[in-house]
Design a protein around this nucleic acid. Structure first.
Length: 470
RNA sequence: GGGGCCGUAGGGUAGCCUGGUUAUCCUAUGAGACUGGGGGUCUUGUGACCGGAGUUCAAAUCUCCGCGGCCCCA
Protein backbone atom coordinates (compact mmCIF):
# COMPACT_ATOMS: atom_id res chain seq x y z
CA UNK A 1 0.00 0.00 0.00
CA UNK A 2 1.22 3.47 -0.78
CA UNK A 3 2.10 5.76 2.09
CA UNK A 4 -0.41 8.31 0.93
CA UNK A 5 -3.25 5.90 1.49
CA UNK A 6 -2.30 5.62 5.14
CA UNK A 7 -3.01 7.53 8.25
CA UNK A 8 0.39 8.66 9.41
CA UNK A 9 -0.51 8.70 13.11
CA UNK A 10 -2.41 5.45 13.53
CA UNK A 11 -0.33 3.40 11.11
CA UNK A 12 2.96 5.12 11.75
CA UNK A 13 5.18 2.04 11.43
CA UNK A 14 3.85 1.21 8.01
CA UNK A 15 3.90 4.82 6.89
CA UNK A 16 7.49 5.15 8.02
CA UNK A 17 8.70 1.97 6.33
CA UNK A 18 6.95 2.96 3.12
CA UNK A 19 8.06 6.55 2.98
CA UNK A 20 11.72 5.68 3.44
CA UNK A 21 11.41 3.50 0.39
CA UNK A 22 9.03 5.55 -1.75
CA UNK A 23 10.89 8.82 -1.27
CA UNK A 24 14.19 7.11 -2.21
CA UNK A 25 15.77 7.80 1.17
CA UNK A 26 16.84 4.43 2.50
CA UNK A 27 16.96 0.92 1.09
CA UNK A 28 16.23 -1.46 3.90
CA UNK A 29 16.81 -4.58 1.83
CA UNK A 30 20.49 -4.87 2.66
CA UNK A 31 20.90 -8.48 3.80
CA UNK A 32 22.24 -7.79 7.30
CA UNK A 33 19.80 -7.16 10.10
CA UNK A 34 19.81 -3.60 11.36
CA UNK A 35 21.99 -2.25 8.55
CA UNK A 36 20.62 -0.07 5.80
CA UNK A 37 21.72 1.71 2.64
CA UNK A 38 21.51 5.48 2.28
CA UNK A 39 20.25 6.17 -1.22
CA UNK A 40 21.38 9.34 -3.03
CA UNK A 41 18.36 11.46 -2.14
CA UNK A 42 18.39 10.32 1.46
CA UNK A 43 22.11 10.83 1.71
CA UNK A 44 21.78 14.39 0.42
CA UNK A 45 19.17 15.05 3.07
CA UNK A 46 21.44 13.54 5.69
CA UNK A 47 24.35 15.68 4.57
CA UNK A 48 22.33 18.89 4.62
CA UNK A 49 21.08 18.12 8.13
CA UNK A 50 24.57 17.24 9.30
CA UNK A 51 25.87 20.39 7.64
CA UNK A 52 23.81 22.39 10.12
CA UNK A 53 25.04 20.27 12.99
CA UNK A 54 28.62 20.53 11.83
CA UNK A 55 28.41 24.29 11.58
CA UNK A 56 27.18 24.50 15.16
CA UNK A 57 29.91 22.14 16.35
CA UNK A 58 32.63 23.98 14.46
CA UNK A 59 31.97 27.11 16.45
CA UNK A 60 33.78 25.63 19.43
CA UNK A 61 35.06 22.16 18.59
CA UNK A 62 37.64 20.78 16.23
CA UNK A 63 36.75 17.85 14.04
CA UNK A 64 38.82 14.66 14.27
CA UNK A 65 38.65 11.09 13.07
CA UNK A 66 39.49 8.12 15.26
CA UNK A 67 39.83 4.48 14.20
CA UNK A 68 36.86 2.17 14.18
CA UNK A 69 38.62 -0.59 16.11
CA UNK A 70 39.34 -0.51 19.83
CA UNK A 71 41.68 -3.02 21.47
CA UNK A 72 39.99 -5.17 24.06
CA UNK A 73 42.28 -4.13 26.90
CA UNK A 74 41.39 -0.45 26.47
CA UNK A 75 37.74 -1.19 26.00
CA UNK A 76 37.61 -3.24 29.20
CA UNK A 77 39.22 -0.65 31.46
CA UNK A 78 36.18 1.21 32.72
CA UNK A 79 34.03 -1.22 34.71
CA UNK A 80 30.66 0.51 34.45
CA UNK A 81 31.19 1.38 30.84
CA UNK A 82 31.81 -2.30 30.05
CA UNK A 83 28.76 -3.39 31.94
CA UNK A 84 26.70 -0.98 29.88
CA UNK A 85 27.98 -2.08 26.52
CA UNK A 86 29.54 -5.52 26.60
CA UNK A 87 26.39 -7.33 25.51
CA UNK A 88 26.13 -5.28 22.36
CA UNK A 89 29.68 -5.19 21.07
CA UNK A 90 30.74 -6.73 17.78
CA UNK A 91 34.21 -8.25 18.04
CA UNK A 92 36.88 -8.74 15.42
CA UNK A 93 38.77 -11.81 16.55
CA UNK A 94 40.65 -12.89 13.46
CA UNK A 95 42.92 -11.42 10.81
CA UNK A 96 42.62 -13.68 7.82
CA UNK A 97 42.81 -17.13 9.28
CA UNK A 98 44.90 -16.10 12.28
CA UNK A 99 43.42 -15.56 15.69
CA UNK A 100 44.28 -12.06 16.93
CA UNK A 101 46.32 -11.79 20.14
CA UNK A 102 44.18 -8.87 21.22
CA UNK A 103 40.57 -8.94 20.02
CA UNK A 104 39.32 -5.68 18.56
CA UNK A 105 35.94 -4.15 19.31
CA UNK A 106 33.95 -2.29 16.68
CA UNK A 107 33.35 0.95 18.56
CA UNK A 108 29.87 1.18 20.08
CA UNK A 109 30.93 4.75 21.00
CA UNK A 110 34.43 6.18 21.14
CA UNK A 111 35.32 7.02 24.75
CA UNK A 112 37.72 4.14 25.06
CA UNK A 113 39.24 4.89 21.66
CA UNK A 114 39.81 8.55 22.39
CA UNK A 115 40.76 8.71 26.01
CA UNK A 116 44.08 6.84 25.80
CA UNK A 117 45.03 9.56 23.31
CA UNK A 118 43.72 12.28 25.62
CA UNK A 119 46.25 11.00 28.14
CA UNK A 120 49.00 11.72 25.63
CA UNK A 121 47.63 15.03 24.44
CA UNK A 122 46.85 16.66 27.75
CA UNK A 123 49.90 17.80 29.74
CA UNK A 124 49.09 21.13 31.25
CA UNK A 125 46.21 23.43 32.03
CA UNK A 126 47.13 25.24 28.83
CA UNK A 127 45.88 22.20 26.89
CA UNK A 128 42.45 22.66 28.40
CA UNK A 129 39.68 22.85 27.58
CA UNK A 130 39.98 20.25 24.86
CA UNK A 131 36.90 20.06 22.63
CA UNK A 132 36.68 17.70 19.69
CA UNK A 133 34.01 15.93 17.74
CA UNK A 134 33.71 13.38 14.98
CA UNK A 135 30.93 12.05 12.76
CA UNK A 136 31.42 8.32 12.32
CA UNK A 137 29.75 4.96 12.20
CA UNK A 138 29.41 2.94 15.37
CA UNK A 139 28.18 -0.58 15.93
CA UNK A 140 25.82 -2.06 18.46
CA UNK A 141 24.52 -5.57 18.43
CA UNK A 142 20.87 -4.66 19.04
CA UNK A 143 18.77 -7.61 20.05
CA UNK A 144 15.48 -5.79 19.99
CA UNK A 145 13.43 -5.05 16.92
CA UNK A 146 15.61 -3.01 14.55
CA UNK A 147 14.17 -0.15 12.52
CA UNK A 148 15.80 2.06 9.89
CA UNK A 149 17.44 5.18 11.37
CA UNK A 150 15.87 4.47 14.75
CA UNK A 151 17.28 1.24 16.12
CA UNK A 152 20.18 0.06 14.02
CA UNK A 153 23.18 -2.18 14.39
CA UNK A 154 25.37 0.21 12.46
CA UNK A 155 24.82 3.81 13.42
CA UNK A 156 26.15 5.38 10.27
CA UNK A 157 26.13 8.99 11.39
CA UNK A 158 27.07 9.31 15.02
CA UNK A 159 28.13 12.84 15.83
CA UNK A 160 30.00 12.48 19.10
CA UNK A 161 31.69 15.34 20.87
CA UNK A 162 34.20 14.86 23.68
CA UNK A 163 35.56 17.54 25.93
CA UNK A 164 38.03 17.74 28.79
CA UNK A 165 38.17 20.48 31.42
CA UNK A 166 40.10 21.47 34.49
CA UNK A 167 37.23 21.21 36.95
CA UNK A 168 33.91 19.51 37.49
CA UNK A 169 32.21 22.90 37.35
CA UNK A 170 33.77 23.80 34.03
CA UNK A 171 32.61 20.48 32.65
CA UNK A 172 29.13 21.21 33.93
CA UNK A 173 29.28 24.54 32.14
CA UNK A 174 30.07 22.63 28.97
CA UNK A 175 27.07 20.36 29.53
CA UNK A 176 24.89 23.46 29.58
CA UNK A 177 26.50 24.79 26.43
CA UNK A 178 25.97 21.45 24.72
CA UNK A 179 22.31 21.53 25.64
CA UNK A 180 22.04 24.99 24.09
CA UNK A 181 23.81 23.80 20.95
CA UNK A 182 21.42 20.91 20.57
CA UNK A 183 18.42 23.15 21.15
CA UNK A 184 19.68 25.43 18.42
CA UNK A 185 20.16 22.47 16.09
CA UNK A 186 16.66 21.11 16.59
CA UNK A 187 15.17 24.60 16.42
CA UNK A 188 16.70 24.99 13.00
CA UNK A 189 15.03 21.75 11.94
CA UNK A 190 11.71 22.67 13.54
CA UNK A 191 11.84 19.55 15.69
CA UNK A 192 10.27 19.89 19.15
CA UNK A 193 12.02 18.39 22.14
CA UNK A 194 11.77 17.77 25.83
CA UNK A 195 14.97 17.95 27.85
CA UNK A 196 15.18 15.71 30.89
CA UNK A 197 17.76 14.45 33.30
CA UNK A 198 17.80 10.69 33.04
CA UNK A 199 17.40 8.82 36.30
CA UNK A 200 20.57 7.48 37.88
CA UNK A 201 19.87 3.90 36.90
CA UNK A 202 19.43 4.88 33.27
CA UNK A 203 22.39 7.21 32.75
CA UNK A 204 25.23 6.65 30.32
CA UNK A 205 27.49 3.90 31.66
CA UNK A 206 30.38 5.68 33.33
CA UNK A 207 28.74 9.10 33.58
CA UNK A 208 27.95 11.22 36.63
CA UNK A 209 24.68 12.16 34.99
CA UNK A 210 22.95 12.21 31.62
CA UNK A 211 20.68 14.79 30.06
CA UNK A 212 18.58 13.65 27.13
CA UNK A 213 16.51 15.18 24.34
CA UNK A 214 13.29 13.40 23.43
CA UNK A 215 10.81 14.22 20.72
CA UNK A 216 7.38 12.71 20.14
CA UNK A 217 6.74 10.66 17.04
CA UNK A 218 3.37 10.65 15.26
CA UNK A 219 2.18 7.52 17.07
CA UNK A 220 2.83 9.14 20.46
CA UNK A 221 6.01 7.22 21.27
CA UNK A 222 9.01 9.27 22.24
CA UNK A 223 12.31 9.11 20.41
CA UNK A 224 15.57 9.99 22.13
CA UNK A 225 17.33 12.30 19.70
CA UNK A 226 20.32 13.47 21.66
CA UNK A 227 22.20 12.93 24.89
CA UNK A 228 24.66 14.97 26.91
CA UNK A 229 26.78 13.35 29.59
CA UNK A 230 28.80 14.74 32.43
CA UNK A 231 31.54 12.17 32.89
CA UNK A 232 33.09 13.74 35.98
CA UNK A 233 36.62 12.42 36.40
CA UNK A 234 35.52 8.78 36.10
CA UNK A 235 37.19 8.14 32.78
CA UNK A 236 40.12 10.39 33.66
CA UNK A 237 40.89 8.14 36.62
CA UNK A 238 40.55 5.03 34.51
CA UNK A 239 42.65 6.31 31.63
CA UNK A 240 44.94 8.40 33.81
CA UNK A 241 44.27 11.70 32.09
CA UNK A 242 45.97 14.39 34.17
CA UNK A 243 47.08 17.94 33.70
CA UNK A 244 49.48 20.13 35.64
CA UNK A 245 47.74 23.17 37.09
CA UNK A 246 49.16 26.69 37.65
CA UNK A 247 50.69 25.55 40.93
CA UNK A 248 52.39 22.50 39.48
CA UNK A 249 49.84 20.09 40.97
CA UNK A 250 48.78 17.10 38.87
CA UNK A 251 45.00 16.80 38.64
CA UNK A 252 42.53 14.62 36.81
CA UNK A 253 40.56 16.29 34.06
CA UNK A 254 36.77 16.40 34.09
CA UNK A 255 35.03 15.35 30.94
CA UNK A 256 31.81 15.54 29.00
CA UNK A 257 30.58 13.84 25.90
CA UNK A 258 27.44 14.32 23.88
CA UNK A 259 25.98 12.71 20.82
CA UNK A 260 23.40 12.85 18.09
CA UNK A 261 22.76 10.07 15.61
CA UNK A 262 20.78 9.69 12.38
CA UNK A 263 17.71 9.59 14.54
CA UNK A 264 17.67 13.34 13.88
CA UNK A 265 16.95 12.52 10.23
CA UNK A 266 14.24 10.13 11.28
CA UNK A 267 12.64 12.90 13.35
CA UNK A 268 12.61 15.32 10.41
CA UNK A 269 10.99 12.71 8.20
CA UNK A 270 8.43 11.56 10.72
CA UNK A 271 7.41 14.78 12.39
CA UNK A 272 7.02 17.04 9.36
CA UNK A 273 5.71 14.50 6.87
CA UNK A 274 2.07 13.90 6.03
CA UNK A 275 -0.01 11.26 4.27
CA UNK A 276 1.33 12.40 0.90
CA UNK A 277 4.92 11.91 1.96
CA UNK A 278 7.80 14.03 3.16
CA UNK A 279 7.63 17.71 3.92
CA UNK A 280 11.19 18.96 4.18
CA UNK A 281 12.20 22.19 5.84
CA UNK A 282 13.73 24.38 3.10
CA UNK A 283 17.10 24.47 4.85
CA UNK A 284 17.64 20.75 4.47
CA UNK A 285 15.67 19.94 1.32
CA UNK A 286 17.99 18.47 -1.35
CA UNK A 287 15.71 20.12 -3.89
CA UNK A 288 14.13 23.29 -2.56
CA UNK A 289 12.18 24.31 -5.62
CA UNK A 290 10.91 22.10 -8.39
CA UNK A 291 9.77 23.74 -11.59
CA UNK A 292 7.19 21.80 -13.56
CA UNK A 293 6.68 23.14 -17.06
CA UNK A 294 3.37 22.17 -18.60
CA UNK A 295 4.67 21.04 -21.95
CA UNK A 296 2.69 21.24 -25.12
CA UNK A 297 4.21 19.62 -28.16
CA UNK A 298 3.69 22.74 -30.26
CA UNK A 299 4.64 25.27 -27.61
CA UNK A 300 8.16 25.71 -26.25
CA UNK A 301 7.48 28.85 -24.25
CA UNK A 302 6.83 27.12 -20.89
CA UNK A 303 10.18 25.39 -21.16
CA UNK A 304 11.97 28.62 -22.02
CA UNK A 305 10.46 30.45 -19.08
CA UNK A 306 11.30 27.49 -16.81
CA UNK A 307 14.96 27.67 -17.75
CA UNK A 308 14.95 31.40 -17.25
CA UNK A 309 13.52 31.03 -13.74
CA UNK A 310 15.90 28.21 -12.98
CA UNK A 311 18.84 30.49 -13.79
CA UNK A 312 17.41 33.27 -11.69
CA UNK A 313 16.82 31.07 -8.62
CA UNK A 314 20.08 29.15 -8.95
CA UNK A 315 21.95 32.45 -9.01
CA UNK A 316 20.41 33.12 -5.60
CA UNK A 317 21.77 29.76 -4.37
CA UNK A 318 18.48 27.91 -4.27
CA UNK A 319 18.62 24.22 -5.02
CA UNK A 320 16.39 24.02 -8.08
CA UNK A 321 15.25 21.29 -10.44
CA UNK A 322 13.34 21.67 -13.69
CA UNK A 323 11.38 18.48 -14.19
CA UNK A 324 11.24 18.13 -17.96
CA UNK A 325 10.62 14.40 -17.79
CA UNK A 326 8.08 12.52 -19.88
CA UNK A 327 5.56 12.01 -17.10
CA UNK A 328 2.38 14.00 -17.12
CA UNK A 329 2.17 17.00 -14.82
CA UNK A 330 -0.10 15.27 -12.29
CA UNK A 331 2.33 12.40 -11.86
CA UNK A 332 5.17 14.87 -11.31
CA UNK A 333 3.18 16.76 -8.71
CA UNK A 334 2.63 13.59 -6.70
CA UNK A 335 6.22 12.50 -7.08
CA UNK A 336 7.74 15.72 -5.79
CA UNK A 337 5.20 15.99 -3.03
CA UNK A 338 6.21 12.50 -1.92
CA UNK A 339 9.83 13.63 -1.87
CA UNK A 340 8.99 16.66 0.21
CA UNK A 341 10.18 19.47 -2.07
CA UNK A 342 9.08 22.60 -0.17
CA UNK A 343 8.06 24.73 -3.12
CA UNK A 344 6.72 23.93 -6.56
CA UNK A 345 6.47 26.33 -9.47
CA UNK A 346 4.10 25.38 -12.26
CA UNK A 347 4.50 27.09 -15.59
CA UNK A 348 1.91 26.46 -18.28
CA UNK A 349 0.78 28.28 -21.42
CA UNK A 350 -1.78 30.27 -19.43
CA UNK A 351 0.94 31.46 -17.02
CA UNK A 352 3.27 32.34 -19.85
CA UNK A 353 0.63 34.48 -21.57
CA UNK A 354 -0.04 36.39 -18.39
CA UNK A 355 3.61 36.79 -17.39
CA UNK A 356 3.12 34.87 -14.14
CA UNK A 357 3.72 31.44 -12.58
CA UNK A 358 1.78 29.24 -10.18
CA UNK A 359 3.37 28.79 -6.77
CA UNK A 360 2.52 25.81 -4.55
CA UNK A 361 3.99 25.35 -1.06
CA UNK A 362 4.28 21.68 -0.07
CA UNK A 363 2.76 22.03 3.38
CA UNK A 364 -0.46 23.85 2.46
CA UNK A 365 -0.72 22.89 -1.22
CA UNK A 366 -2.52 26.20 -1.78
CA UNK A 367 -1.92 27.27 -5.35
CA UNK A 368 -1.53 30.91 -6.16
CA UNK A 369 -0.45 32.99 -9.12
CA UNK A 370 2.61 35.18 -8.83
CA UNK A 371 3.76 37.81 -11.33
CA UNK A 372 7.11 36.94 -12.89
CA UNK A 373 8.75 40.17 -11.83
CA UNK A 374 7.73 39.55 -8.19
CA UNK A 375 8.85 35.92 -8.14
CA UNK A 376 12.13 36.28 -6.30
CA UNK A 377 10.67 38.18 -3.35
CA UNK A 378 7.70 35.82 -3.20
CA UNK A 379 9.90 32.73 -3.16
CA UNK A 380 12.12 34.16 -0.48
CA UNK A 381 9.11 35.07 1.64
CA UNK A 382 7.36 31.74 1.10
CA UNK A 383 10.45 29.76 2.14
CA UNK A 384 10.54 31.60 5.43
CA UNK A 385 6.82 31.03 5.92
CA UNK A 386 7.10 27.31 5.22
CA UNK A 387 9.86 26.94 7.74
CA UNK A 388 7.87 28.85 10.31
CA UNK A 389 4.67 26.92 9.70
CA UNK A 390 6.43 23.56 9.97
CA UNK A 391 8.01 24.46 13.26
CA UNK A 392 4.80 25.92 14.69
CA UNK A 393 2.72 22.97 13.60
CA UNK A 394 5.21 20.52 15.10
CA UNK A 395 5.45 22.36 18.42
CA UNK A 396 1.68 22.73 18.64
CA UNK A 397 1.18 19.00 18.27
CA UNK A 398 4.03 18.31 20.65
CA UNK A 399 2.57 20.53 23.37
CA UNK A 400 -0.80 18.87 22.99
CA UNK A 401 0.89 15.58 23.70
CA UNK A 402 2.73 16.57 26.86
CA UNK A 403 0.39 16.75 29.81
CA UNK A 404 0.56 17.06 33.56
CA UNK A 405 -1.35 14.16 35.04
CA UNK A 406 -3.23 13.99 38.32
CA UNK A 407 -3.13 10.24 38.72
CA UNK A 408 -1.55 7.08 37.37
CA UNK A 409 -4.61 6.06 35.38
CA UNK A 410 -4.54 9.28 33.42
CA UNK A 411 -0.80 8.88 32.93
CA UNK A 412 -1.32 5.37 31.69
CA UNK A 413 -3.87 6.37 29.08
CA UNK A 414 -2.16 9.40 27.61
CA UNK A 415 -0.78 9.10 24.10
CA UNK A 416 2.43 11.05 24.44
CA UNK A 417 4.28 12.28 27.51
CA UNK A 418 2.80 12.34 30.99
CA UNK A 419 4.25 14.57 33.68
CA UNK A 420 3.97 13.43 37.29
CA UNK A 421 5.33 14.59 40.64
CA UNK A 422 8.06 12.22 41.80
CA UNK A 423 10.20 12.04 44.93
CA UNK A 424 13.32 10.95 43.07
CA UNK A 425 13.59 7.46 44.60
CA UNK A 426 14.24 4.53 42.29
CA UNK A 427 11.55 2.37 43.91
CA UNK A 428 8.87 4.95 43.20
CA UNK A 429 10.22 5.46 39.68
CA UNK A 430 10.04 1.77 38.88
CA UNK A 431 6.57 1.60 40.31
CA UNK A 432 5.43 4.46 38.09
CA UNK A 433 6.80 2.57 35.10
CA UNK A 434 4.96 -0.59 36.12
CA UNK A 435 1.65 1.03 36.88
CA UNK A 436 1.54 3.10 33.74
CA UNK A 437 3.22 0.61 31.39
CA UNK A 438 5.45 3.45 30.24
CA UNK A 439 9.15 4.24 30.41
CA UNK A 440 10.57 6.81 32.70
CA UNK A 441 12.32 9.40 30.56
CA UNK A 442 13.70 11.58 33.31
CA UNK A 443 13.28 14.61 35.44
CA UNK A 444 12.12 17.80 33.78
CA UNK A 445 14.75 20.01 35.32
CA UNK A 446 13.22 23.32 34.25
CA UNK A 447 9.92 22.42 35.86
CA UNK A 448 10.00 22.60 39.65
CA UNK A 449 6.91 23.06 41.77
CA UNK A 450 5.78 21.88 45.17
CA UNK A 451 3.75 18.71 45.09
CA UNK A 452 3.68 15.19 46.46
CA UNK A 453 5.17 12.06 44.91
CA UNK A 454 2.43 10.23 43.06
CA UNK A 455 3.54 6.94 44.65
CA UNK A 456 4.78 7.55 48.19
CA UNK A 457 3.22 10.95 48.87
CA UNK A 458 6.44 12.56 50.08
CA UNK A 459 6.82 16.26 49.43
CA UNK A 460 8.82 17.00 46.30
CA UNK A 461 9.51 19.62 43.68
CA UNK A 462 10.54 17.14 41.05
CA UNK A 463 8.52 16.39 37.93
CA UNK A 464 9.10 13.17 36.06
CA UNK A 465 8.29 12.63 32.36
CA UNK A 466 7.09 9.22 31.27
CA UNK A 467 6.07 7.85 27.89
CA UNK A 468 6.06 4.85 25.63
CA UNK A 469 9.38 5.15 23.92
CA UNK A 470 11.09 3.80 20.85
C1' G B 1 13.37 -11.29 28.01
C1' G B 2 8.32 -13.85 26.51
C1' G B 3 4.60 -14.77 22.74
C1' G B 4 2.38 -14.47 17.83
C1' C B 5 2.31 -13.61 12.44
C1' C B 6 4.91 -13.53 7.83
C1' G B 7 8.70 -14.17 3.45
C1' U B 8 5.95 -15.32 -4.30
C1' A B 9 9.12 -10.18 -10.33
C1' G B 10 11.86 -3.48 -8.34
C1' G B 11 7.13 -2.49 -4.95
C1' G B 12 2.16 -4.52 -3.42
C1' U B 13 -0.47 -9.22 -3.87
C1' A B 14 -3.54 -14.25 -5.39
C1' G B 15 -2.44 -19.31 -5.07
C1' C B 16 -0.53 -22.67 0.28
C1' C B 17 -5.22 -25.15 4.53
C1' U B 18 -6.57 -29.99 0.67
C1' G B 19 1.15 -31.14 -3.07
C1' G B 20 0.03 -32.09 -9.76
C1' U B 21 -0.93 -27.91 -16.70
C1' U B 22 2.25 -22.39 -18.82
C1' A B 23 2.05 -19.18 -11.00
C1' U B 24 -2.91 -14.44 -10.52
C1' C B 25 -3.83 -9.37 -10.55
C1' C B 26 -2.18 -4.18 -9.64
C1' U B 27 2.12 -1.28 -10.01
C1' A B 28 7.02 -0.50 -11.85
C1' U B 29 10.15 -0.86 -16.06
C1' G B 30 12.16 -1.20 -21.94
C1' A B 31 10.51 0.12 -27.10
C1' G B 32 6.86 2.73 -30.34
C1' A B 33 2.74 6.06 -30.97
C1' C B 34 -0.86 9.44 -29.43
C1' U B 35 -0.89 12.87 -25.26
C1' G B 36 0.13 16.87 -21.54
C1' G B 37 -2.97 22.66 -15.81
C1' G B 38 -3.48 16.63 -10.33
C1' G B 39 -1.39 9.62 -10.50
C1' G B 40 -2.98 9.19 -19.16
C1' U B 41 -4.31 5.68 -23.43
C1' C B 42 -3.07 1.93 -26.98
C1' U B 43 0.50 -1.75 -29.05
C1' U B 44 4.48 -4.85 -27.61
C1' G B 45 8.34 -6.59 -24.39
C1' U B 46 10.95 -7.49 -19.27
C1' G B 47 10.56 -9.55 -14.57
C1' A B 48 9.28 -13.83 -8.90
C1' C B 49 8.10 -18.77 -5.38
C1' C B 50 14.28 -16.06 0.82
C1' G B 51 18.56 -20.02 1.54
C1' G B 52 19.56 -25.10 2.86
C1' A B 53 18.09 -29.99 4.19
C1' G B 54 14.09 -33.55 4.41
C1' U B 55 9.25 -36.18 2.97
C1' U B 56 7.29 -37.53 -2.00
C1' C B 57 6.71 -40.23 -8.47
C1' A B 58 5.96 -34.84 -7.81
C1' A B 59 7.02 -29.09 -3.24
C1' A B 60 5.49 -21.96 -3.87
C1' U B 61 2.24 -25.47 -1.11
C1' C B 62 4.04 -30.35 4.09
C1' U B 63 8.42 -30.84 8.05
C1' C B 64 13.07 -29.06 10.22
C1' C B 65 17.19 -25.58 10.44
C1' G B 66 19.10 -20.84 8.99
C1' C B 67 18.54 -15.78 7.35
C1' G B 68 15.26 -11.67 7.06
C1' G B 69 10.75 -8.81 8.12
C1' C B 70 6.28 -7.27 11.09
C1' C B 71 3.19 -7.05 15.59
C1' C B 72 1.97 -7.59 20.81
C1' C B 73 3.38 -8.14 25.97
C1' A B 74 7.31 -7.31 30.13
Amino acid sequence: MRAMEMNKDSEFSEWYTNILFEADLIDSRYPVKGMYVWRPYGFKLRNLIYGILRKIMDEEHEEVLFPLLIPKNEFMKEAEHIRGFENEVFWVTRGGSEELDVPLALRPTSETAMYPMFKLWIRSHADLPLKIYQIVNTFRYETKHTRPLIRVREITSFKEAHTAHATWEEAEEQVKRAIEMYKKFYDELGIPYLVTKRPDWDKFPGADYTVAFDTIMPNGKTLQIGTVHHLGDNFARTFDIKYEDENGEHRFVHQTCYGISERCVSAVISIHGDSRGLILPPKVAPIQIVIVPILMSDDERAMEVSREIERLLTSKDYRVLVDNGEERPGAKFYKWERKGVPLRIEIGPRDVSERRVTLVPRDTLQKRGVALDKLLEEVEQEMKEIEKRLSQRAWKKFRERVRKCEDLKEAREIVGVALLPWCGEEDCGKKIEEETAKDLLGEVVELRERSRCIICGRETERTIAIAKSF
